[in-house]
Design a protein around this nucleic acid. Structure first.
Lengths: 213, 213
DNA sequence: CATCTTTTGAGAGTTACTCTCATTTCATGG
DNA sequence: CCATGAAATGAGAGTAACTCTCAAAAGATG
């Protein structure tokens, strides 16, 4: 009972009230992800095998796959997606949709940074780099984009008084997601020059607001 | 020297003037694709292995991978993409971008149908179904969407007097592609009800034209 | 027909992922 | 604190998509 088990990772404050089991799960989850990031920075994505990841995270390969369905998911899954939906829903009714989007982007980015100051930025850049360089990762991102898009559909539907399965709503939302993604890629390809938030704003500006009803 | 070798496939007229080597390559390419479609319709996507595909196409598995980098690509690659770029470039300068898009969509769809009447529709529907049902295929589609998007960027840049790497151009183009894809998915999820072209039109209509300069 | 080049097949190897089952680890009520 | 049940883990075997290499076959060329 020395500090051995805590050596792996320290948990965020929010995890205090979870059961021992849940806390352990969170820990291995984080351990796997950290191990992955480390290895990728050392050797690159392709050279990093799941076995190596398991080794460094001190779990078995089986466990890695139990936590993450695919290798790409280890790098890509984040916890902020469902948050975005809530945030959007919390915005005032009369605010324009694009303004709301702008707001929640700033919001969620600053939350991520508050969670883990230096880490968040490095992680985001690595993710974006992998996204542009590794086809498997990129296509996985694209897919998750369409999932996120569906999530946002619900919130946007409420906003505009349309149905969430309305063709226009879905097209519009997908367009928004694509725009944001493209802006992020643009930023990455230009060596992270300038302010990402500005680029995202410009990306949003190419859209007109989706009319109500 | 009976008709044996031609039993595999018959080539389109356009292939008449190719060398024997090129004609053979085209044939195996088509043979592989047809075998794949057949097997998938019989057994489903996941149950169909590359080995089976190779068997039915009467080539070795190595050859399959020589022609198509991944299993998904067998289903997805089509030859109409670069065509779209040309078509767009051929449209009159003063036509609105969205109108041009509408035009070339109709154009390329009718070309595909003229190429292979009954086949084209079945193939398209199967592809769309796989796209919505099989994650690997969907994400591959998404990726190829961003490739197509880049192609269109060039044409759209010319049109609007912007640079092809302009952020707005890229965002806008990506949005267009996403919109079209989403409309196609929508059509598929609603059991191919109604006219796909109408849906695509509606999807395009959610965009405003990208202003010049 | 001989030679050179391209394409193919065969086979071995890697790795992401799946399934199963025995073992360990936590939760719970007495 | 312990007995019992539930959940998480590890070990191992299996599958299938790819990759690489090399020798044989087939088309191009003079």
């Amino acid at each position: 009972m020395t500090g051995m088990t805590t050596a792996r990772t320290s948990l965020p404050e929010a995890a205090r009230h979870l059961s021992l089991r849940e806390r352990k799960k969170l820990k291995t989850r984080i351990a796997i992800r950290n191990a992955t990031y480390e290895l990728i920075e050392e050797q690159g994505y392709d050279a990093t095998t799941v076995e190596q990841i398991a080794d460094r995270a001190e779990v078995s390969p089986s466990t890695v796959f139990r936590y993450f369905p695919t290798k790409e998911d280890i790098v890509l899954t984040d916890e902020y997606d469902p948050l975005a939906e809530e945030l959007l829903r919390a915005r005032p009714e009369d605010e324009s949709l694009l303004d709301s989007m702008r707001f929640i982007i700033r919001q969620s980015m600053s939350m991520a940074i508050a969670d883990a100051p230096t880490f968040a930025e490095r992680e985001m850049k690595l993710r974006l780099r992998l996204m542009t360089e590794i086809p498997a990762v990129r296509s996985r991102v694209m897919e998750s984009m369409s999932v996120t898009s569906r999530l946002m559909c619900r919130a946007i539907a409420e906003r505009t008084g349309r149905h969430e399965n309305d063709l226009e709503v879905r097209v519009y939302t997908m367009g928004l997601m694509g725009a944001l993604l493209e802006a992020a890629i643009y930023w990455t390809e230009h060596d992270y020059q300038g302010d990402l938030l500005d680029l995202l704003d410009r990306a949003l500006a190419t859209f007109k607001d989706l009319p109500k009803r």
